[in-house]
Amino acid sequence: MVEAVQQMQEQEFEVGAALPPFVRRAGLAAWNRYAAVNDEFVAIHMDEAAGRAAGYPGAIGMGNLIWAWLHAMIEDWLGDRGRLEYMECRFRAPALTGDEISCAGTLRGRETREDGATALELEVWADKQTKERLVAAKVLVVIPA
């Protein structure tokens, strides 16, 4: 049984392996919950007219909320097997009211460190339902020996 679990983990941590997707709906309900926790009641995130006045088609989602969704996807996949050590995001476009945001990722590199820990390099992203890339990120995850 232990060998089967180890083999499954090895396959999951192979270069090229995909992370399970994490999907959320953008809009006032999600943005309001995020704003309440982070005291981020900024007009362009809460009001369609304010978003349009700022040059967007309407209210836009918080970039840090999408960052948090990417983080949640990684944590769901990784569980207690390791830790997220580094994450760098590049924001390309805003999420708009009603967008379905799909977070996904791929394991791009694997290295065994001197202490026996395994370092995994991930490429992760968040796309709209139109396949427009909202966020691209590089991540380093460490699994202790």
Rank of each mutant, 00 (worst) to 15 (best):
A53W: 01
F22Q: 12
A54T: 05
H71N: 11
L107Q: 09
W125T: 10
V124R: 00
A36S: 13
G27V: 09
Q11I: 07
E123F: 13
E85Q: 11
G51W: 12
I101P: 02
G58P: 09
V139E: 14
L84R: 07
Y56A: 14
K131G: 09
V124S: 09
T106M: 12
R81Q: 12
L28C: 08
D47G: 04
E48R: 02
A54E: 14
E114M: 09
V37W: 05
I143M: 12
A136M: 05
D127T: 13
W67G: 14
L78R: 01
M1E: 14
A30E: 15
W69G: 08
Q11W: 07
R113C: 10
N38M: 14
R113Q: 13
W125Q: 11
R90W: 00
W67K: 08
W67P: 00
G51M: 06
V124M: 02
A30K: 03
G82V: 14
E3S: 15
V23T: 13
Q7G: 02
A4M: 13
A18P: 00
G79R: 00
A29H: 11
W31M: 13
G105W: 08
F22M: 08
P144Y: 08
Q6T: 10
D76V: 03
L96I: 10
M46P: 06
A29M: 09
G105D: 05
D39A: 06
A136L: 08
A136R: 01
R108S: 14
E12W: 12
I44R: 00
A17P: 01
A119Q: 12
M73E: 08
E3R: 03
P21Y: 02
L19T: 00
A4H: 14
W69F: 10
H71M: 10
F91C: 03
T118E: 05
A68H: 01
C103G: 08
E12C: 11
K128I: 02
N32P: 02
T97A: 12
A49W: 03
S102C: 14
G105N: 04
R33G: 03
L140E: 04
A104I: 00
A43L: 09
D80K: 04
E132M: 14
K131P: 01
E10Q: 12
T112M: 06
R83I: 13
T106V: 15
M87K: 00
F91V: 10
E10N: 06
G98H: 06
W67S: 10
P94S: 01
E10L: 11
T130F: 04
M1L: 11
A93Q: 08
W125D: 04
E14H: 14
D99K: 01
G51H: 04
D47E: 14
N64A: 11
A104C: 03
T112I: 12
N32Q: 14
R52C: 10
L65M: 15
V124W: 04
I143S: 00
G61H: 00
P20A: 15
G79F: 09
V42T: 05
M62W: 00
L134V: 11
A126K: 02
E48H: 15
L65D: 09
L107Y: 07
R110P: 04
L120I: 07
L140R: 08
R113F: 11
A18C: 02
V15L: 06
Q6C: 04
A68F: 08
T97W: 11
E40W: 12
D99Y: 06
L120V: 05
S102F: 05
R24I: 09
T106C: 10
M46D: 03
W67E: 08
W69I: 13
A93I: 05
E85C: 09
M62S: 13
T118S: 02
M8A: 15
R110W: 07
